[in-house]
Design a binder for these strands. Sequence first.
DNA 1: CTTAAATAAATTGCATACAATATAACAGTA
DNA 2: TACTGTTATATTGTATGCAATTTATTTAAG
Lengths: 143, 143
Amino acid sequence: MEDKFDPLLLENQLCFPLYAVSKALVRQYEPLLSELNLTYTQYIVMLAMWEKKTLSVNDIGAMVHLDSGTLSPLLQKLEEKGFLDKTRGQDGRKRLISLTEEGANLKEKAKDIPLKIGNCLHLTPDEAKCLYSLCYKTLGWLE
Amino acid sequence: MEDKFDPLLLENQLCFPLYAVSKALVRQYEPLLSELNLTYTQYIVMLAMWEKKTLSVNDIGAMVHLDSGTLSPLLQKLEEKGFLDKTRGQDGRKRLISLTEEGANLKEKAKDIPLKIGNCLHLTPDEAKCLYSLCYKTLGWLE
DNA sequence: CTTAAATAAATTGCATACAATATAACAGTA
DNA sequence: TACTGTTATATTGTATGCAATTTATTTAAG
């Protein structure tokens, strides 16, 4: 007489461990990022900016999967911290976001963060690649 | 002359796709859960309650990885919705959370949700198992 | 019994997330 | 050109997350 499989047990969820590990990992970043005066969300926006130098709000949103409701106040804060500038482009609707010199210099201070985070994951390179691929594969179906 | 590997490119992050897929997946739940008058976080608390029937706030927190700062107002809302009851145990510091009849009945209405979510993931059973295991393995190292 | 230390929840303050709405500016058309 | 529809961003409202603090209660020591 085996128990019937209950799809509503917490341990039978797939989303829940994703949700839990995502939050736990973000918490690992916070002490490292606070030294740069950044939160995790601000950090991924800075990653996008270090990569592209100048972007519209929508461009950033497409890269980091956030909408203007989240980005508007967040970009405001990064501007107040002196890391970003906002200007108007030819198209007056767009706000062009660009790095200040201070914002660009911050990349140097961030360079050790990925390794430090990687070290606390305890995944083999293959496991990390597998996790990475499965996340992107799933993400591809959800948008 | 190959480009040097830049660990600060968005595409070289492991946390970022986890963070993005977690949010995207939670968004998939929202339209299904709104029919039950639940948010995703409220749903995982209800999963814990359906499983254990009675729990303290800390017990729930340990199961779903949330602290009292998040749970206190959330449990308040679930109580107002009529899904949960709060009582005092022998230990007057603890609040014992239990299911109301309405809360218990809600499980029947939720029973198809896991399958619906599973269908939109487009992962093979092996891939799902792999993703599940890697999340729990990582989670184990982060707390 | 009294009081200091520990524990359980709740509260506060700040920073997301995101749906829905509003606003501003551009683009196409009669 | 005046009007309409579209696009880009900002604003509003609700619900988390979580660190830090506070409050209530219990436990342990003296």
